[in-house]
Amino acid sequence: MRARRLSSFSDDVIADMVARYVSGESQTSIARTYGLDQPTVSHLVRPHAPPERSRRRAHGTTNGAGKLTDDQVRHIRSSFDTGAITQVSLARQHDISPSTVHGIIKGKTHSPFGESTPN
């Protein structure tokens, strides 16, 4: 089967794919219907799909399964900033990995609302 260019799909076909995806149909099922592979369907529907169909997960304190509260994150940052404790000690204290502590300190993860992250 010869690959089709993404631009060869009409707006109506893309709208149908998006509607089916939003209604809960899998990208793989949609791909089979149109004789495509799943990554192609993903490329076509994801920009138009609502956020609730996104696989992107919440990070930091917005993650429902997160271990740390905003106060704990502030404590980790302030304790490390004062030089009073090492990253490994903070990790043990909060039952998290040292790499998580590093991410918190560098502002890569756990950005509580209203708190600016370091650059």
Rank of each mutant, 00 (worst) to 15 (best):
R92K: 13
R46C: 05
R20F: 01
N63P: 06
G24W: 13
Q27P: 06
I14A: 02
I14H: 06
K106D: 15
G60D: 04
K106R: 15
R32Q: 15
R32C: 11
V41G: 01
R55C: 08
T69M: 05
T117G: 03
E25Y: 01
V45Y: 01
G24L: 10
R56H: 07
T62Y: 06
T40F: 07
H102Q: 14
H94R: 01
R4K: 15
T62H: 09
R55Y: 13
D11C: 06
M1Q: 14
T109Y: 14
I30S: 01
I96S: 03
R5D: 09
Y34K: 04
V45P: 05
K67I: 00
R74I: 08
S54V: 01
T28K: 15
I76H: 02
V101C: 10
S99C: 08
T61Q: 05
I30N: 00
T86V: 12
S89G: 13
D81L: 12
T82Q: 08
T28E: 07
S97Y: 07
A84S: 15
I30Y: 01
R2P: 13
R74W: 04
G60A: 03
S79K: 10
I104E: 02
R92A: 12
H110I: 07
D71T: 05
H94G: 02
S79W: 02
S78V: 10
Q93S: 13
D81W: 04
V41A: 00
H110D: 14
E25Q: 12
R20A: 09
N119M: 10
K108M: 08
N63T: 07
M17H: 12
Y34C: 03
T61A: 09
R57E: 11
H94K: 07
E25K: 05
I105M: 10
V88C: 00
I85F: 04
H75G: 01
A65F: 09
H48V: 04
A15H: 12
H59F: 10
E115L: 12
D95Y: 11
S89K: 07
H94E: 07
A58S: 12
R32M: 14
A49I: 09
N119L: 14
L36P: 02
M17K: 08
P47I: 10
G60C: 03
T86F: 04
A84H: 14
N119I: 12
A91V: 03
T61D: 00
H59I: 12
G64R: 05
D81M: 05
P112L: 04
S89P: 00
E115F: 10
G107W: 04
S111E: 02
H110P: 08
M1H: 15
G103L: 13
F80E: 06
T109L: 09
R77L: 01
R77M: 02
A84W: 09
I96H: 07
G107M: 11
A15W: 08
F113T: 15
I104V: 09
P50V: 12
I30H: 00
L36F: 03
G107N: 09
R46P: 07
K106I: 14
G83R: 05
P118N: 15
R32N: 15
V18E: 00
